[in-house]
Design a protein around this nucleic acid. Sequence first.
DNA 1: CTGTTAGCGCGTTCAA
DNA 2: TTGAACGCGCTAACAG
Lengths: 350, 350
Amino acid sequence: MPLRSRTRKQSAATIKDVAELAGVSAMTVSRVLNDKDKVRPETRDRVLASIEALNYTPNLSARGLVKSRSFFIALFYNNPSQGYVSELLLGLLNRCRQAGYHLVIENCGPKESDWEGGIDAMLAASHFDGVILTPPVSDYSSVRAALAEAQLPYVCIAPEKEIGAAPFVETDDFVSAAGMTRHLIELGHQRIGFIKGPPEHGSSAKREAGFRAAMREANLPVSEECVVSGDYSYRSSLEASEALLALTQRPTAIFASNDDMAAAVIATAHRHALSVPDDLSVAGFDDTQIAATIWPHLTTVRQPIEAMAETAMDLLSEAWKADRAPEKAQGIVIPSELVIRDSVAGRKAE
Amino acid sequence: MPLRSRTRKQSAATIKDVAELAGVSAMTVSRVLNDKDKVRPETRDRVLASIEALNYTPNLSARGLVKSRSFFIALFYNNPSQGYVSELLLGLLNRCRQAGYHLVIENCGPKESDWEGGIDAMLAASHFDGVILTPPVSDYSSVRAALAEAQLPYVCIAPEKEIGAAPFVETDDFVSAAGMTRHLIELGHQRIGFIKGPPEHGSSAKREAGFRAAMREANLPVSEECVVSGDYSYRSSLEASEALLALTQRPTAIFASNDDMAAAVIATAHRHALSVPDDLSVAGFDDTQIAATIWPHLTTVRQPIEAMAETAMDLLSEAWKADRAPEKAQGIVIPSELVIRDSVAGRKAE
DNA sequence: CTGTTAGCGCGTTCAA
DNA sequence: TTGAACGCGCTAACAG
């Protein structure tokens, strides 16, 4: 194990120490670090050796000070499902480490209004190099305005629609929801309940539209009593599913807009002594951890959250390279896929 | 909405701008900011006004450079349950914002060995002001050694036992597990299954010990076939609970060491057409999100994760104030509480 | 109570 | 190809 060479009080080695040990000037060390101008290979090697010997790494504060960069990016989130944040973090963290960046998490509070006051000051104080917005913050106009005013590069994850020139990443909610609905229909379900997400999430409307499109495509009527509102929370879906199961013409399948709500449907079904999937098929969306944790395992749509996060970082990198913001928003959609597990079955013959 | 006063290209206001506008020197501004020496109230007010007018906030890089501080602290974690991280984050974030710190999340990889190489370099590179360790990283001796060598203040969350002089926070796993076991016993259960956590988590042994102590206290024998191993994951508990339910003398209640594993017990019970809690009572530990998400809602032990996180931050603050590390480790235990929900019932008469 | 000088560690600009 | 100055924004020391 390499011991720190500086024995006295710890105080990390500086570029000067490295320079001295290598017998060059600090400037030369800086050059090999930043790979800018060419340095004679021999010199370069000597410097590299000294860096290693001293276990040196540049001081971010100092570097940031001269370059006007902080090497930190922020993730703005607001109370999404726990599984969602966790997976997002994984993807982000990967890329961050590769790029030498650090990630700062900022919770925006439950409502947009909670933030309106502080966002400006917060942005000014933090000196982030970039920001990543997760839904529903992606659609907070106050946040986006503040970001734009501060001329801070940012990328939105799953925004409702492209606004301004901010790059964004999303999955194809419409297509995936339609795909799941088709799956249900192919299994013989005709009366399908749907639980909506909250209007402030862009994905809600798209998933609902996908559901309706597939139904229309199959010439199946969508009875409006079968489409109820939720807000992506387990609790909201407890009521919603109760309403659905209380219908005189009970649906044979229920498609919930996310996994948490699907979990609640299953709970309600159990309470009604209904077997899933024998008496009722249940489908979710997102494939967060809970999907394979509850019983029966959820048939759902796997949203590539981690890949989306990685892509978001890549988009940020591009924004830094390009000095100016691009003319039009660059949007990347990463497809989702159907994950068939145990909560959906063919409709029983009647 | 207050518009930024500097109209040209954005480039945040500096302390000099503020000083100029207030008609004082930069030093004075610095003083009102850091509240050190007293500044004449009138002057102070003028400065404050200028700060507000310019929407000024100090540049962390510059400040960090002179104070040799980064204003960032790191959270080292390793694949704990998603609910656990999420709640931890909430508590940490609260305190961080209050204290003007930012939080950096570092994933340590699934195994300690994944880290051994990089930890030194990583620590040197990051210049964190402090680190918070979550289990099982709290017990990684290589990490703790590196931290100690770097003379970086750190606090451990739920370590196996106090090692060295690092402050720590924990909940009373032993007492809580014993309490839950007593609850089961009071409801008439005598044959109780127990699913252990992984040995690398300090909490595992303590929870098991609490269980055994309560059984002994009630003069109830613990049949070793009723104590099976898990690793805090849902999947591990699928096997474990299968083994328990296959016993010729099946337990009437199962106490799983955490909620994820309890969820798997419920799934397995359902698969065996066993009703929870009528045929089998199931208890968990942690009260993470899943506890109130699955059906039936889990009777569990609420571990005050958020409060523990906040306490961890407070401990760090104290470490900063005290120039030297304290002689003996300061440990704080925050009690857990029983949360009675629907997965446990009295034992049916036979 | 307030201003001045100096320097934190690094990258830019210029000259050698 | 390399080095010497200077300054980024801020605060610790010391004046005044």
